[in-house]
Design a protein around this nucleic acid. Structure first.
Length: 153
DNA sequence: GCCAACGTTGGC
DNA sequence: GCCAACGTTGGC
């Protein structure tokens, strides 16, 4: 079992949106970054735990926890010309992009702010606090997960 | 909305 | 395969 952090812009899709979906489950589509894609396709597994991180908003930080309920499969939005995630260079026999399904588990009472995370002594290596952290899917170590969870709950 | 940092593209 | 130009990300 592994731990992850998924970024989302709450204006587009927030943890509240996830919690209100049928069965509190939704596919995590629209990832268009190769490194993140590799994680989704190869490493994110059913049962893995995921921090949902809100970016580009008023309350930047970790908003809650979800669980992976379906491992990597082809993101169909890449073939849909009407989708904003449409990729004309991708084809069904050679798909470029993948997604997973996640199920909402827990929304923290307060968002664990990026500022607080940066102040935590044992959270120094996570992609978030490094310069230019633009990866939308990133691994979290077990130690980091427990520290962040304790700080957030 | 600004702007720095980053990934991707495409000409050569 | 280099690298400049461009587009995007994301905190503030």
């Amino acid at each position: 079992m592994q731990y992850w952090l998924f970024k989302t812009e709450p204006d587009a899709f927030s943890i509240e949106d996830l919690a209100s979906k049928p069965n509190q489950t939704e596919h995590w589509d629209g990832i268009r970054n190769y490194q993140a894609r590799n994680f989704l396709r190869d490493e994110v597994k059913v049962g893995d735990k995921v921090f949902i991180y809100h970016s580009s908003c008023k309350d930047v930080g970790i908003a809650g926890v979800a669980e992976v309920v379906k491992a990597g499969y082809v993101d169909h939005t890449q073939f849909d010309p009407d989708s904003k995630y449409f990729d004309p260079k991708s084809s069904p026999d050679k798909p470029r992009w993948y997604m997973v399904d996640v199920k909402h588990q827990h929304t923290f009472k307060r968002v664990l702010s990026l500022k607080t995370i940066k102040q935590m002594g044992d959270i120094q290596d996570i992609g978030l606090v490094k310069k230019g952290h633009r990866l939308s899917i990133m691994p979290v170590t077990e130690k980091e997960w427990h520290s962040l969870y304790e700080a957030a709950k």
